[in-house]
Write a protein that binds this DNA or RNA. Structure first.
Lengths: 348, 348
DNA sequence: CTGAAAGCGCTTACAG
DNA sequence: CTGAAAGCGCTTACAG
């Protein structure tokens, strides 16, 4: 069928000729711009189908001064995380990009990013119309993107009041802590790390709010945080020692994320504690591993794909609305929050 | 510093003028083609630096008929696997792509891929110079890529005798089984699934070879395979029942990959078996989770980043060597195998 | 070894 | 509402 012969590329010119029309008309129907009579449109569409015409991306870019590429910037360590969190956000963005006819160029950056030296090529070459930045990244990078003038949106992170998609961490946390309380727990601890990540500090805040509201003044002695560590299994395991080694042992722990929760559970099991009987544990994120852990993890679900999708859509809207990039009004409309949802399984 | 002013784009023309040279000369020094005198080159380079010239990707593409993009095709389920296996391969390719000045466009495809309907846009639009296909994918896709005439290489998969980068699964497996034998094990079982993936069937073969060589004729009663399942934790867990429920219980199990091994361990622990005392377990892949499991997983390491890097490099070479895509000679030179390495930890 | 010129395949004012 | 033409920023023969 599809002979791998050196078939000549079909151009817009061929289509125009075939449809007895002009290149501009073809261009208009392809791009859905301007008015073309129904008859002409049909003829053109027919010619396109018959000839198998596919527009050339580079030619379009060159002529229109748009790349139709979106950059997706992510810390390398976030990309290779065993729990596919950002990967799923990326996937959501990719999915929506297909709908919107964008290509997404992924650029991973080192954790110790340095301006200039590590500038992603897509930024240097300005080979994107807009950028999505996922998760916490070096502020050098942020400033660099900001200076570039290329529109961008953040996902699961915030910077000044630039457009962003964030999780409703506070309410998700409140819900989790309340659930624990309903189960009769009073001594509820918080376990966290990398507290400078806004998602994590918001989760702490939610915890504090819920505790205060329930009349527990002293949350401080019950919060265990290793600020300098990233929130991984290992960190959770290590913090487990501190939590369970103190004199005032909690009966429940709300963890800043699933990895920490899983690490804590691992430690607790090693100490022969029964979960949830001896210690109830709730995580946050709803990561793959939580479904397969023993016991299965009770957690707060984050809609990762949806976040990516929203980010792409928001960015696409920005690109359409502000070609001159000047309207700084209504910025707050561009800071979206997606709800999180408590998922009750076995660990609490 | 970097004013976000509407600075006019610096073009090759500006550089030529500034360097008192011509556009073609500038082009040549940028691309390192043809001969340019040292003096001219220096002048041009100086002008480029001073003006901050960055070539326009689309203009280049249009003029040269190369996109400078590489497509990376991957099954969606492989991308979101909790164990970042293919993700790391991708990262390796991405890394090498930077060196070679390619952008890599990631396209994830559904597991139930259908020709035409699901054709990745990068293929349809021919917006890539070459393609990397990672892991086992639908044969429809393979045929479609083949028909497109776009050069491609496979990673961790094979198709006809197209260029590929594969793991030395057989020798890795032999090494693992031999290690188990050295430890005194005789009843060594094999645990696997999705046996149609060449990597997995090769691992089985390695197992069989090693067993035979050691005088164990009957490997059949010791191989446990669920062909229709993918090699996940869950499958490993489920197969655990069969392995440990039979009358002839193995003292060691060589698993087709880490996920299966981890699932098996989970089941065995639940059955109060001690690992490795009661049951020794070896995996394959050396995935993140194995380092944090209890006990830590003994496994065969696969150099994932390196595989991606090799794939990109191989593809880049193909693209340079055969612009007309005709030489089908020496294909076997293009089927690379990377060694695997036994990593001894705690589970065996 | 270097420069002038055509051409890559589109989009976009601009006439009509 | 539709067509002719310029121009996007490069690369690549082709003269010199």
């Amino acid at each position: 069928m599809n002979q791998p012969t050196k078939k000549k590329k079909v151009t817009i010119k061929d289509v125009a000729k075939h449809a007895k029309s002009s290149m501009s008309t073809v261009s208009m129907v392809v791009n859905g711009k301007g008015y073309v009579s129904d008859i002409k449109r049909k003829e053109v569409l027919g010619a396109i189908r018959q000839l198998g015409y596919v527009p050339s991306a580079p030619a379009r870019s060159l002529a229109s001064n748009r790349t139709n590429n979106i950059g997706f910037i992510l810390r390398e360590s976030h990309f290779t995380l065993s729990e596919p969190f950002y990967t799923r956000i990326f996937l959501g963005a990719e999915f929506e990009a297909k709908n919107q006819n964008y290509y997404v160029l992924l650029a991973t950056v080192a954790d110790d990013y340095e301006r200039e030296a590590d500038t992603p090529r897509l930024l240097k070459e300005r080979n994107v119309d807009g950028i999505i930045i996922a998760g916490k990244v070096n502020s050098e990078l942020l400033m660099e993107v900001e200076d570039s003038g290329i529109p961008f949106v953040l996902v699961d992170y915030q910077y000044k009041s630039y457009p962003s998609i964030t999780i409703d961490n506070r309410n998700g946390s409140i819900e989790a802590v309340r659930y624990l309380m309903e189960k009769g727990h009073k001594d509820i601890a918080f376990l966290g790390s990398d507290i400078r990540h806004p998602s994590i500090s918001d989760r702490l805040e939610g915890y504090q709010l819920a505790m205060l509201k329930a009349g527990h003044q002293d949350t401080k002695s019950m919060t265990f945080i290793d600020e300098d560590k990233s929130p991984t299994l290992q960190t959770g395991f290590d913090l487990g020692m501190r939590i369970l080694g103190g004199k005032r042992k909690p009966t429940a722990v709300f963890c800043a994320n699933d990895a920490l929760a899983l690490g804590l559970i691992k430690y607790a099991k090693q100490k022969k504690l029964k979960i949830p009987e001896d210690l109830a544990v709730v995580g946050f994120d709803d990561v793959e591993g939580g479904k397969f852990s023993t016991p299965q993890l009770t957690t707060v679900r984050v809609f990762k794909e949806q976040m990516g999708e929203l980010a792409l859509r928001l960015l696409a809207e920005l690109l359409d609305d502000i070609p001159t990039l000047n309207s700084k009004f209504e910025r707050s409309n561009h800071m979206l929050t997606v709800p999180a949802e408590l998922i009750i399984r076995e660990s609490a």
